[in-house]
Write a protein that binds this DNA or RNA. Structure first.
Lengths: 328, 328
DNA sequence: TTGAAAGCGCTAACAC
DNA sequence: GTGTTAGCGCTTTCAA
């Protein structure tokens, strides 16, 4: 394997000059530049990435922590992140936490071992307190999920408003017995529940604790929850599904059990993923501007990387809207 | 930022001993080991990843090239790859090519710049001839997609058989006018078409060239193709969709246009992704053991990494089967 | 069982 | 404009 030394020798120049050519420095004669290119080609030379990183103390790589790629929400988020990353010569290191606290925590070592320059959380299993110290090791941003105690930039949506819109829509369609699905672990989940409950109490509707479900946001969860609802004595007439995948699973399972959607049971999703449109009836949902959220996040990362603004408490909030289809 | 030198000093030992502790070498007194641990903790020390990689000439990272993560097939494949990668202390660097020849080609530099130890193709835009030289830079494996000229290990399915099964099922259900969707660029695509045509000719069924569609495997493509079919004078009675997403898009669009599935039009998918079960009617499909394919691939990569078997032409072929649901 | 020393491949002062 | 040189932080002979 050829090194920069070999190239320098063959071109009859010094390592520095070769390095300058590699890094597009000005002040290199066109002639010598050509000499270098020629030698590189002849030797099939490529700069060693580890050596560059060690010397430059920079990796141009950003870690992106996602719970799972099989939840389509995250590939769409990554899509947005990647657009801006590529524009800025950054590489993404995609890390699946599988909702595992320890795994998530261990990925923070990427920052300490200088394998990445920055890190983006799109979900969070650990307490903020245990994450906070890692801010010293490089820029950390939260995207999608958030913590109000966290003194780092956040790109998020108004989840309170999102679920409020969803619940309101259900109520306006005459529903008073509404089930709720969603996590209550993160602040995102708590806010979403808050908005939901706000809409109910605004209309003096009471919540039945039996109608609250905490499962994972998956199709299987949707099916499971629907079966649980069916076995209830006092059944809700509508469900706030918390995600399109859950909503889709519910619709499918409901129909298997002979229910008509939305007549027997109204379902509203969250996210506006492709599956929402595919369902029969098409899933009414709360749309999140996922791609835009990704882009805004990476823009912020780039600015942190260049300005060294290590601890701006910057909150970007993007719009969220109701998409009416046929399931309510 | 503390370095190994700092740790050594604080512990009153040499860099070598600290390094030995870091790398779990035998022959270090328990006492000194503890001294090192203590110093590392005190200094909040973490080994610099770039320095280790440069020195060890190893990154323990494998590049995985996928067309796109928003096609759920690939997240499921990655799931399988990751299981075995984690077991073997390997990291995945997931790279989206977005079906772009140049992008794909540029990712090969990861191998030459020694940013990764090996590389896995799950699709291929470039000719094999232009990829072949990169074998010198590290182990390359093909998974899912394949090329018979390629002298590298391949983990794949019998695509000829898969599409044959699908077409046969359509024929057995009385169809003689069958449309086909699928790429004809890669060998996977060609084989799939081959199997499809084999089933037809076995039953003396002729193919109408107007019934062949080459769009991308997406929901939108499915919708578009369905509309194209609707505008045809001589319409097929069944469609081999080539992917579940395409099939799902078709079913949805067909119903919008008042068609009954499968009475007016039978649809068969490919992959057996979650969306197949969600559709109404549920999508009959050809199931690929995606997760298993990922695992087998990474097992092979691990063995290449350890045995230095750089050019085994090893083909692993996994079973493929028909899943009968309601769309045929 | 431990330490000294060489060197992985590169970049960036600094000097000319 | 170009070369010399120091050194990024680590591992691994080699010798003791």
């Amino acid at each position: 394997m050829a090194t920069i030394e070999d190239v320098a020798k063959l071109a009859g120049l010094s390592r520095s000059t070769v390095s300058r050519v590699i890094n597009n420095h000005p002040y290199v004669t066109e002639r010598k530049k050509q000499l270098v290119y020629q030698a590189m080609k002849e030797l099939d030379y490529y700069p060693n990435s580890s050596a560059q990183r060690l010397r430059k103390q920079r990796t141009d790589t950003i870690a992106v922590l996602v719970p799972s790629l099989t939840n389509p929400f995250f590939p769409f988020l990554i899509e947005g992140l990647e657009i801006v990353a590529v524009e800025n010569g950054l590489q993404l290191l995609i890390c699946q936490t599988h909702q595992n606290k320890t795994k998530e925590y261990n990925y923070l070592q990427l920052l300490q071992t200088k394998q990445v320059d920055g890190l983006i959380f799109t979900s969070l299993e650990n307490d903020w307190a245990s994450i906070a110290p890692f801010k010293e090791s490089g820029p950390i941003i939260m995207c999608n999920e958030y913590r109000s105690e966290a003194t780092i930039p956040v790109v998020r949506l108004d989840q309170v408003k999102g679920s409020y819109l969803g619940a309101k829509h259900l109520i306006e369609n005459g529903h008073k017995k509404i089930a709720y699905c969603g996590s209550n672990k993160g602040e995102l989940g708590m806010d979403r529940q808050k908005g939901f409950l706000a809409a109910l109490s605004e209309s003096n509707i009471e919540m039945n604790s039996q109608w609250i479900f905490r499962d994972n946001p998956s199709i299987e969860s949707g099916k499971k929850i629907l079966r649980a609802i069916l076995s209830l004595e006092d059944k809700p007439t509508a469900i706030f599904a918390g995600s399109d995948e859950v909503g889709a699973g519910m619709i499918k399972e409901a129909k298997i059990h002979g229910l008509n959607i939305p007549e027997d049971l109204a379902v509203i999703g969250f996210d506006d993923l492709p599956v929402a449109q595919l369902m029969e009836p098409a899933l009414t949902t709360v749309k999140q501007p996922i791609n835009e959220m990704g882009q805004k996040t990476m823009e912020m990362m780039v600015s942190m990387l260049t300005n060294q603004d290590k601890s701006i408490k910057n909150v970007v909030e993007l719009p969220i809207e109701l998409i009416k289809r046929e399931s309510v």
